[in-house]
Each structure stands twice: as C-alpha cells, then as structure tokens.
Nucleic acid binder design. Structure first.
Lengths: 135, 135
DNA sequence: TTGCGTGCAAAGGTTTTGCATGGCA
DNA sequence: TGCCATGCAAAACCTTTGCACGCAA
C-alpha cells in the first residue's frame, strides 16, 4: 500500500503534533521548509489526499476562498468525536468547537428529520465574539 | 440600500424562476448572455454577494474546486423567522426546517461560545432520508 | 526491477480587485 | 450632483496535472 517515505513521516509527525488543530496545505509546506526540508506543494496535496482516504486525517472545506483545513484524527476517529466549525463573516476567523451539546444536533436531525448529518462539511456562519463586540 | 439596476432585476427574475434548484455564478452569466444581456462576471459575483447578505439568496459551498451554488430562498426569509437548511450531498436536495430544537442552537452558541449565529447562511450538510436508505 | 512517490513548473478554474465609465436616486 | 453599480481585464488564489527522476519494496 502506502510507501513509507521521508516526506510522509515528517508530515505525519507534524500533524500528530497538533491534534485538534487546523492546518492548511500551505502550513504543512511552510513548516517543513522551516525545518530545512524541501517539499513540493504537489507532494503535500497528494500525501494529504492519501491520508484523508485512509481516515487518518480529516478534511474540512469552509468555502471556496479559504484553503482547506486538515486535522489529525488518528485514534480519535473511532471515538465518534465530532467537531463543528464556526466561521466569522466579519473577520473570517474559524472557530473550532468540540461540544457535547452540539453533537446532539446530529442525533436530533437523524431521529426527527431522518437526516444524516455530516459534521465535516457543516459550518456555522455568524459573527464571532470580538467582531460582535466591535459593532 | 441596494440600487434597483437592470442587472439585479434580471438576476432576481432568473433565480426566482428556479426555486429549490442550485445555480452557479457561471450559470447566471451564461443565462443572461443567452438573453442578449451583456453582463460581467464580476457583476454577477458582486450582486450575488449582496443578495446573500440580504438573505434573499442562499450560498452553498461544496468544495474548493466545484463552483459555489446559489439558490433563491424568498424575499420573506429576513422576516425574522429562523429557518434552517439541510443540503443532501447525494441528490442535492435542499430541506427546509422550522424546528424549535434547532433554534436553540443559536442561543447555545451565543451563551456558551459567544458566537452570533446567522441561520440564513448556515447549512447542514449530510445525506437525506431517501439517499441514506438507498445506500 | 517495478512502480509508486517526489519536485518543479505550468496549467486549470473560480473568485476577487482596479479603474474608468455609466446609471440610479 | 453624489455615489453606487457595472464592465472589462488582469490579478490572486488554491489546487491539480504533466513529466522526468528518485527511491521504497
């Protein structure tokens, strides 16, 4: 299956080092370059795609402008721990939420509306605390 | 407020003519061009953005490659009644929900996370009942 | 040796922006 | 008249693809 290349290992190490945090393809490249590693943007995308297919990392699409976000899932992938995202329409900040109460939404949608929620793609739009205070 | 320009009216008419269906920015441009109307792609995007902000049109992001989809949601959408939407990733069907339990989400996000939810722009992605049964 | 992985560069496509012009209020 | 909206074109941006070379198995 997947080859154990040096680039892949470094990427894994980096992603594993920040669980529960969002990383873009650009972040990966930049980080590896700062470590003195030469890596092509194409390799990052291709390797990330593989990792997503293997279920090791999650991929979040916010919109067509913001780069896609990746996150290490690893062992947590089996715990059913979902995470939701809030996107501020003012400053563009992305808020990352692990909240039990929100996790109940999926269950409610399924039981009462027969809808199987996909938290990976679902984004709450609104205004964040700072921007709301500044209005 | 928003000016009543000819381009805006034609776009509104087109969008209103296909409720419940998704349209890309390219579709709008192409349609208007086929009607003998000259319209710039930039105008389409700028006008769509305004309509989205006004809550008249919904905007759906599938991923970073597929163009964004727009859909007419009615000019009454901003009357204060909260209305949530579920978008089926399989068949593309859009489900409109008026649900008290979901309305509690906004309150929860505000109280516990300081986030002011914008229901007009928030879309739940997932799989609808029919498509889930067919899988 | 086989064939996947990598790097570089260029392409692909959507969306945004700059600037001068035109149209609504 | 004062702005906002428009058109055109170019830019910006993320992502994908082509191709030759390198490296894991």
């Amino acid at each position: 299956m997947a080859y154990k290349t040096k680039q892949r290992e470094i990427m894994m190490e980096y992603l594993k080092g920040m669980p529960g945090r969002h990383v873009t393809a650009g972040d990966v490249t930049e980080h590896l370059r700062s470590k003195g590693q030469t890596i092509g943007q194409a390799t990052v995308y291709r390797q990330l795609e593989k990792l997503v297919d293997e279920g090791i990392v999650g991929k979040y699409m916010i919109d067509g402008v913001t780069p896609a976000c990746f996150e290490y899932m690893g062992e947590n992938a089996h715990k059913g721990e979902t995470c939701f995202h809030c996107k501020c329409e003012k400053c563009g900040k992305l808020i990352h939420l692990h909240c039990e109460e929100l996790e109940g939404i999926g269950e409610h949608l399924y039981k009462d509306h027969g809808f199987v929620l996909n938290p990976l793609r679902t984004v709450f739009y609104g205004v964040c605390e700072e921007c709301a205070a500044a209005m």
